[in-house]
Design a binder for these strands. Structure first.
Lengths: 214, 214
DNA sequence: GTCTATAGCCAGATAGAC
DNA sequence: GTCTATCTGGCTATAGAC
């Protein structure tokens, strides 16, 4: 009798929660998002997944392809957050308040995400062209129109949609990208930094609304 | 007759503007700031410097030490910009306006700088501890006091100095870090992006002042 | 100080047994 | 599907001639 039956059973049990392919993907997420494409090591991914290095190639053929799987996954996580701001029908003020509060909670769960995406896009800017082909890629058109509308109605002071959107992203995302710098300038530790970021859930939206509301 | 005399003359001519050591440092700046520590290759630096690879080791011993020289240099370029906001005696409004306008001009000359510093600090957060020992390392204390003062005098609405400083940095720096993303969301090319950034020289300071001024 | 040649290592990828 | 063993190439770093 061969070990086939045993393997079958083991596999079945694993599949309850996750198969080898997703175990690898999760390990790869951790390593790539922390170290970047260039700094990541296939050996480290294999260790974290608790499997043999050659399995990575069996499932994903190459480091490059494994990386791309991780990257697309990360971007797919972020895009819906942005689309809420760009395409929801509620007022600008409502969206600013909810995005700010939600995004900061969201990013505390995925601390390496913004840095990872931004660094890898700067390393390889053409990569974004492929992403743009996807349906659901964030687009600013509807947001611009909404901003113009609310200005027309006397709700907002004049501002270009592009600038407002950049400002919203900047105020929310930047502190999580520049965390080591901010901790150093302000002389604060992790605990105080987290407190500061929690304050920002309302601080940032007040700051924006104060500036743009008539 | 040996070639010593020739070498001496050649060296003398080079020294008019730059010696080998600084030629290497400049080449290293380009490569490290674009590719990061992990992505950079000593061969590429040598090529860009127009010299032999072994010279890099002759002058800087190792890739790590060459990298550190580049990093400290980059940081030393950025720190005075920040200290202007933190320590100058002019009013907050004046400083916000001048920093915003100057910084955007500054960064167009050094496009990879913020990304480089931020990525490398995230890769190796302990590195900033060494920088903090330097005199002139940006510190927020005086700025905090000034903000409190102006609030007391009824010039500014209540806000923590930390939040205001983070907001100033975020609004100015973020678009240059997230350039590929912004270009994709807004569907604009390089030329339109530069125009948008030029608009921000006044847009950003108005946005901030609007929000904090009584 | 600058070059050529090469040591020595490490990482990604594959072959092949089970 | 999973493992061990190994190939192959590329990279940092050094030895040594000039």
């Amino acid at each position: 009798m061969s070990t086939k039956w045993l393997n079958y059973i083991v596999n079945y049990m694993k599949n309850k929660d996750e198969n080898t392919e997703t175990v690898i993907l999760n390990a790869a997420k951790n390593v790539f998002q922390e170290k970047g494409m260039d700094g990541a090591r296939m050996q480290e991914i294999a260790n974290k997944a608790g499997i043999n290095k050659s399995m990575l190639h069996y499932y994903y053929r190459s480091k490059q392809l494994l990386f791309e799987a991780v990257f697309k996954n990360a971007f797919a996580l972020l895009a819906p957050e942005l689309n809420k701001v760009l395409n929801d029908d509620s007022s600008i003020e409502t969206k600013v308040r909810s995005f700010t509060s939600n995004y900061i909670s969201f990013i505390i769960k995925h601390p390496y995400l913004p840095n990872f995406i931004i660094h890898e896009l700067n390393r390889n800017p053409e990569f974004i062209l492929k992403l743009k082909e996807n349906k659901g890629f964030p687009n600013i058109l509807k947001f611009n129109k909404q901003v113009d509308d609310e200005i027309q109605k006397g709700i907002l002071k004049p501002i270009k949609g592009e600038h407002l959107f950049i400002n919203i992203l900047a105020l929310n995302i930047f502190p999580f990208i520049a965390t080591p710098l901010i901790k150093a300038f302000a002389n604060i530790d992790n605990k105080e930094f987290t407190e500061l970021m929690n304050e920002r859930k309302t601080e940032v939206s007040d700051f924006i609304i104060n500036s743009i509301k008539v």
